[in-house]
Amino acid sequence: MKQHRRRRLEERFFLVLMVFSTVTVLGSLFLILYTIIRRGMPALSVDMLTKVPKGGYYLGKEGGILNAIVGSLYLAGGGTLIALVLSLPIALYLHSHARHSRVVHVTRLALDVLWGVPSIVYGAFGFIILLALGMRASLLGGIIALALLELPIMTRGMDEAIAMIPDALKEASYALGATHLETAVKVILRQSAPALLTAVLLAFGRGIGDAASVLFTAGYTDRLPDSLLSPAASLPLAIFFQLGTPFPAVQQRAYASALVLTVIVLALSIAARYFAKRLTRNVVK
C-alpha cells in the first residue's frame, strides 16, 4: 500500500513539474513579446519608419530607421533569391534517381551540419571572400553571407516538403513517358508548392533577423543602399548600435526598432504556417 502511495505521489510530482516547465517555456515567449511591445510601442512613430537618420541621430536628434528597414529587405531578399536558385535543384536532386545513394545521405548530413554552423562563422567566411575579391563591406557581401546562411534552412525545408509527395504520383508521371526533369517541374513542384513557399518564407525570416553574419559583410550606412557595391544598413544592427549608445532617447528607438523587426519576423512565420495549410487546393493527397 505504501509503495502504491509513493508511486502515485511520484506520478503527481513529475506531472506538476512538467506542466510547470511547459508553462515557463510558453510564458517566456509571451514575456518577450510583452516586453518588446510595451517598451517599443511608445517610441514608435511615423518618422521612425519613413525617414533616414539625419545628422546627430545617434545623439537623439530626429530621423528614422528607413535605411535599416530597406537595407534589411534588400539583404534578406537578395540572400533568399540566391538561396532559392541553389536550394531548389539540390532538394530535387535529393529525391531524383539517387534517392538512397551515399551521396544523398552525405548531403543531408552536410546540410544539417551547415544549419548548425554559427552565423558569426558565415560572417567571417563572407568577410574572407570579400577580402579575396578585393571588395569592401557591401550589399553584395551581405547578400552572399545571408544566402549561405539560408541555404541549409531552405534546402532542408524543401527536402521535407518534397518527401511528402506520394511515390505513386511520380511513378504515374514516369509511366506516361515523362522525363525526370518534366516530372520534377510539372508534378513535384506543383504538388509541393505551398510547402516550398513555407520553406522560403522561413528562410527569409531567419535571414532578415540575423545580425552576426552581416556585421562584417554588409557594413552600415545612414543612407539608402543605391548599388550592390555600396554598404547597406540592416535592422538587427540598427537595434544593436542604437542600444549601444549612452542616450536613453536613442535606446528608446532601439526598442521601437526591435518591435519592427519582431513584427516582420512573426508575420513571416505566421504567413508561412498559413500557406502550408491553405494553399493545398491542387495538391493530391
Binding site: I36, G209, A212
Partner: peptide, 24 residues
C-alpha cells in the same frame, strides 16, 4: 496550441533576445 508557439519562439531574432535580456 503549444507547438506553434514554440516554433514562434525559435523564429525570434537573436538581437531581439538581446534587447529582452537587457530590459528584463
Amino acid at each position: 496550441l503549444a507547438n506553434p508557439v514554440i516554433d514562434l519562439l525559435a523564429g525570434i531574432p537573436s538581437v531581439v533576445y538581446g534587447v529582452w535580456g537587457v530590459l528584463v
